[in-house]
């Protein structure tokens, strides 16, 4: 009798770490996640090789307008330019895929029902699913940044490991890497805002494609709205209107206004998205 009592399980919840590890393993084993991450790693390589082949500055014709032109002969700008380019569509696509699989995908396979029936709190379920999405977002951005730094230093090269800012000053390697890290962190926050909205959509549907269509369609609609001059008052509400702030990291002294305000805007989207997701999942039937 006494032995039975000592065997009575005292823990009523599974350890968070184990659950999170299981979810992450589950997410990272999906071929589509791996393919998307691989494609993302190719972005900085493609830009770097393209610039190395077409020649650096002073060759008359520049590589065209935009931040990419600033990469020529200035390799450490490459990760920042690559993250900026990927943020327009590829990175949101990656996190939207992960978010779509997290809830809508499970629902379409019928496996969400099992999770909802399990003696696990609904909020905890959302948190675990969110951990998987956050992992994908962080991995994707880090991959672009790290591959960008390596490609920038090896393929594009630069003035002895320094970064030339848009203001014409030269930053040492340490400070340049700090700037890259800052942009990476900022990009992750922007992506998490996208992911939170995607999770909210994902909580309402059982078709993963609806999530992808909603997120990518939403981004395109935001772009269109931002281009209409008479809707200028709408700009502060659009998540995408702050996405040019990543370029600010290339200015010296570093202007923080744009980065801070776009981060604040992303946090609002994040809170809204997570709130709606939790609210919906607490009420959802399999």
């Amino acid at each position: 009798m006494t032995t039975l009592e000592t065997r009575t399980p005292t823990r009523t919840t599974a350890p968070l770490g184990r659950l999170a590890a299981a979810e992450v393993r589950w997410v990272l084993r999906r071929p589509r996640t791996l393919v998307l991450l691989g494609l993302l790693a190719l972005v900085p390589v493609a830009i770097g090789v393209g610039i190395a082949l077409t020649g650096g500055p002073g060759d008359g014709d520049r590589d065209g307008p935009g931040l990419v032109a600033a990469v020529a002969g200035n390799g450490l700008v490459l990760p920042i330019a690559a993250m900026g380019l990927a943020l327009t569509l590829l990175l949101p696509l990656t996190v939207a895929t992960a978010s779509a699989d997290a809830l809508a995908g499970e629902a379409s396979h019928g496996t969400l029902r099992g999770l909802l029936l399990a003696p696990v709190g609904r909020t905890r379920l959302v948190v675990m699913k969110a951990v998987g999405v956050v992992t994908v977002a962080v991995l994707a951005v880090l991959l672009v940044a790290v591959v960008g730094v390596i490609t920038g230093l090896v393929v594009v090269g630069g003035p002895s490991g320094t970064m030339i800012t848009l203001s014409g000053t030269t930053l040492g390697l340490g400070e340049a890497l700090g700037r890259v890290l800052l942009v990476a962190a900022w990009t992750v926050v922007q992506l998490l805002a996208v992911a939170a909205v995607a999770l909210a959509v994902s909580a309402f549907t059982e078709h993963p494609l609806v999530v992808l269509a909603a997120v990518l369609g939403g981004l395109i609609v935001f772009g269109v709205l931002a281009a209409i001059p008479s809707l200028e008052w709408l700009q502060p509400l659009l998540l995408t209107s702050g996405w040019s702030a990543g370029t600010d990291a290339l200015r010296d002294p570093l202007p923080l206004d744009g980065l801070v305000s776009s981060t604040g805007r992303a946090l609002v989207y994040l809170v809204l998205g997570v709130g709606i997701t939790v609210w919906r999942m607490r009420r959802r039937d399999g």
């Binding site: 502060p236 509400l237 305000s261 604040g264 805007r265 946090l267 609002v268 809170v271 809204l272």
Partner: peptide, 9 residues
């Protein structure tokens, strides 16, 4: 959402 964005911007 409106209040949040409004406060931010």
């Amino acid at each position: 959402g409106a209040v949040g964005v409004g406060l931010v911007v």
